[in-house]
């Protein structure tokens, strides 16, 4: 069973729809026991990182997420919450990935939010198995995680190279939305489900 962590992080029906299209069974829960029993866990997230972090804390889920030993996938703000901290607040986060989340600086060439399809570079590991080089995926974000040893895919916007995906042990995160990234996104989600 796949568990989507339900912590009031905004709209998650696109993640549910994507899992349904892949024929995966899932449940939505904030129950620590269910989360710790799951085969795979997805930490979704849209909106403000500080508010999302506060929701996780209120539901007593920070330590629960850190103690998961099965594969975890944080998506967008879900990924950012797994970093050390975010400038959006600022707020101290879960500290799983060894990097900080910063705001993009707007320039004439780089609109903020970074929204739309952009290509992935330096993809490594099972999450990207079978994915053609420089595949495009869909991003919507104003804050980014800097490069670090946990980076497993990069992307660039306005001259800033940032982490498009991160991995530390069983924890994975994508800044982009695989659930909205066409067939490339479906492949990445399937790869996660097959871990």
């Amino acid at each position: 069973m796949i568990t989507i962590i339900d912590y009031g992080s905004g709209n998650i029906c696109s993640v549910e729809n994507a899992l349904s299209r892949l024929g995966a069974e899932y449940e939505l829960t904030a129950d620590p026991a269910r989360i710790l029993q799951a085969d795979k866990v997805i930490l979704p997230g849209v909106g403000n990182a500080a508010a999302a972090m506060e929701n996780l804390r209120e539901k007593g889920l920070c330590e629960v997420v850190r103690s998961i030993r099965r594969p975890v996938l944080g998506i967008c703000v879900g990924m950012q919450l797994m970093c050390r901290s975010s400038e959006e607040g600022p707020v101290s986060c879960l500290g799983i990935f060894d990097t900080e989340v910063k705001r993009f600086v707007e320039t004439p060439d780089a609109k903020v939010p970074h929204m739309g399809w952009n290509s992935l570079g330096n993809t490594e590991g099972k999450l990207f198995k079978g994915l053609p080089k420089e595949s495009f995926v869909y991003f919507v974000h104003s804050y980014y995680a800097g490069l670090c040893p946990d980076t497993i895919a990069v992307c660039s916007h306005g001259g800033v190279m940032f982490s498009a995906a991160l991995r530390y042990e069983n924890f994975y995160g994508t800044q982009f939305h695989p659930e909205k990234s066409g067939t490339a996104g479906e492949l990445i989600l399937s790869n996660f489900l097959a871990l």
């Binding site: 696109s14 299209r21 869909y138 479906e186």
Partner: peptide, 8 residues
């Protein structure tokens, strides 16, 4: 539509 398509 949301259930059926995989793009925004």
């Amino acid at each position: 539509i949301a259930a059926g398509i995989n793009i925004p």
